[in-house]
Nucleic acid binder design. Structure first.
Lengths: 232, 232
DNA sequence: CGTACCCTTGATGTTCCTCAATGGAAGTGG
DNA sequence: CCACTTCCATTGAGGAACATCAAGGGTACG
């Protein structure tokens, strides 16, 4: 282990952070951490882009990564937001096509740790449970992605916004709040619409006294049930 | 093995059909087939529905299954079409929530073979490679699902249709054809639109001499590049 | 202190959905 | 095999939802 100390503590931290590894013993996690490398990505910097060859598993140590796709006219569809403990890089696992099909950009200054496929394969052989956990995670993501497709495909924008808000509510002192984890532009991209439409829908919900916009990204939900009902 | 012959040959057939098992030896596949059960589903019959508890892996032996979701107003979003050799049932693998989040309906008279989670877990323990292959498949499906989200989110209907057609082209005698694997209604559901809009877009493409509609589900592509270009 | 980006609101236009009517194909039962 | 029903596909008319273009003010950041 000692010869890896020059990498800093980041590896150990992020390996312990992520559910696919944290069933292992400390010694086992240290072994995995030893195979990891750290990369810092500044806000707005790309971690990878469409078409790039890559066989790396990325684990977010701190910060935030946004995964998106792009069409010919330049419009973005945000696929996923990665927070600390989340990982991506199924490209490294799915063998027959190792090119990225999405862009990954840092939404904040971010630190990721990376494990190369050769090392990961070793770990998977040694600890088959890791494969099971990755499978559980990817399966969960598939569910979320299919739900997103359905939302974008058959719900109107108001419904999509409300469904999104409902996923992010937290309760504080008998009040219900949502702290938006992204700008309206990014929210629009995630919900398959435009910032202008997001803005208008929020205003409309506020006029109906269903929500109240406090700070820019802090929204109070007056009555969640009523809000959900209003868009059916 | 002999005591399983009364199940018929279906099990063996479908276990051999599916890429997640066909790396195994005949004897190993026979063992897995022995744990499978067969179910016949008539056209338009549901295989499972939203909210049902279930811990089964379904492998399509023959026929076709359509997976879809439903919103409160009754609109359908088709998520996936399963053909022989395809499987579904990640619900059986992802542990924490074992309820279906989609409906599965037979688009044709269909035979599926089913493996229960307890048996599957056994197989996964005995042959870790199966987990890797399932992971590869789910990862691939995640890619497709994310692409579908992007299509539905930021492309107009004409683009979605053309992208869909491009995925299904086959060449015959110097002509390019697409045999639509479903009705326009189902295609509309898959593309997040309505049958009327599908119909109109096809007519428009035909007026531009980009396609020609022969039999109901047989479409000739006059020039694929031109067709792709026309919607950019 | 300026610049750039984000958010909001208005005016306008397009896309696509909804409702409705019709013709045709496929399936069903006599 | 034909009459009947049912579903599918097409086309039209109308309208709703949303995108686009444009301009304004607010805010963060160098």
């Amino acid at each position: 282990m000692a010869h890896h100390h020059h990498h800093g503590e980041g590896h150990t931290t992020c390996v312990r952070l992520v559910p696919i590894f944290n069933h292992l013993s400390d010694e086992q996690m240290d072994l995995i951490a030893a195979s990891a490398h750290t990369r810092k990505v500044s806000k707005n910097e790309l971690l990878f882009r469409v078409g790039e060859k890559d066989d790396t598993l990325y684990i977010i140590s701190s910060g935030r990564i946004r995964i998106y796709q792009l069409n010919e006219s330049g419009r973005e569809q945000t696929i996923r937001i990665l927070n600390p403990g989340d990982f991506t890089g199924e490209v490294a696992i799915f063998q027959s096509d190792k090119r990225h099909h999405s862009y990954a950009v840092a939404a904040l200054d971010t630190t990721v740790c990376m494990i190369r496929k050769a090392d990961l394969d070793n770990h998977l052989d040694n600890y088959p449970e890791i494969t099971r956990r990755i499978l559980a995670d990817v399966t969960q993501r598939l569910q979320v992605s299919e739900k997103q497709t359905t939302q974008v495909g058959i719900e109107n924008v108001a419904s999509r916004i409300v469904a999104f808000l409902a996923d992010y509510v937290v309760d504080e002192n008998n009040h219900t709040f949502v702290d938006l984890p992204m700008t309206r532009k990014d929210l629009a991209s995630y919900l398959g619409t435009t910032p202008e439409t997001i803005s208008r829908k929020f205003s409309a919900l506020e006029e109906q006294d269903l929500i109240r916009q406090h700070a820019k990204n802090r929204i109070e939900i007056m009555d969640l049930d009523e809000l959900l009902f209003s868009v059916e």
